[in-house]
Amino acid sequence: MAGFDKVVSSYSEAMVGLEDGMTVIAGGFGLCGIPEGLIGQIKRQGIRNLTVVSNNCGVDGFGLGVLLEDKQIRKMVASYVGENALFEQQLLSGELDVELTPQGTLAEKMRAGGAGIPAFYTATGVGTLVAEGKETRNINGRDYLLEHSITGDFAIVKAWKADRFGNCIYRHTAMNFNPMAATAGKITVLEVEEIVEPGELEPSQIHTPGIYIDRVIKGVFEKRIEKQTTQAAR
């Protein structure tokens, strides 16, 4: 009886079932809080024609950027895709489709998708290119856009600690989009720095309850820093 034990021992086991053409939602902000090993596994498996939903698309050679190298991503849904020359090149050549989405709307699309809400109204983007082709409705004197929520065939999520049941805790600002991504995958895979036994994490301190999580793997992380900014020691 496996019960609620969701721990898998290999990256290939973690990503079983991922196929060409699927939609993958990934947590992370820039290179902070990204599921590095799961992204690496998608690259190794050579899955193609993916729709990837994530705030950013990594940088050249790291994070989701590595999936651009063999043109595995067909469509990217993101709020900001700077810092990535290969991305720009594939966008301009038409090999890559991109749906730029305001950051707050993107977070809410994932949150709503995971919470069973198919769409919502927001003032963000009214009167801009983002509004094109979307229903606008005036509510209490202000215009709002109807935005559809997002779910994925897979969600790949990075947390700090999880117990074997998938209850997890994020560390500092590596939380970002991860809790919403975790709720929005048909299959949600959690890559963590440390796995503990059930009962070791304080129940009231859990950020994402294990019900959203299907698989847990202990990852190996480089945790690259995009912009090292420091002050002189005092």
Binding site: F29, K227, A232
Partner: peptide, 16 residues
């Protein structure tokens, strides 16, 4: 400070 750099602690500009 350089000794307290933390990859999990960034701002919206992706600076530590």
């Amino acid at each position: 400070t350089a000794d307290a750099l933390d990859a999990d602690m960034i701002n919206a500009g992706k600076e530590t």
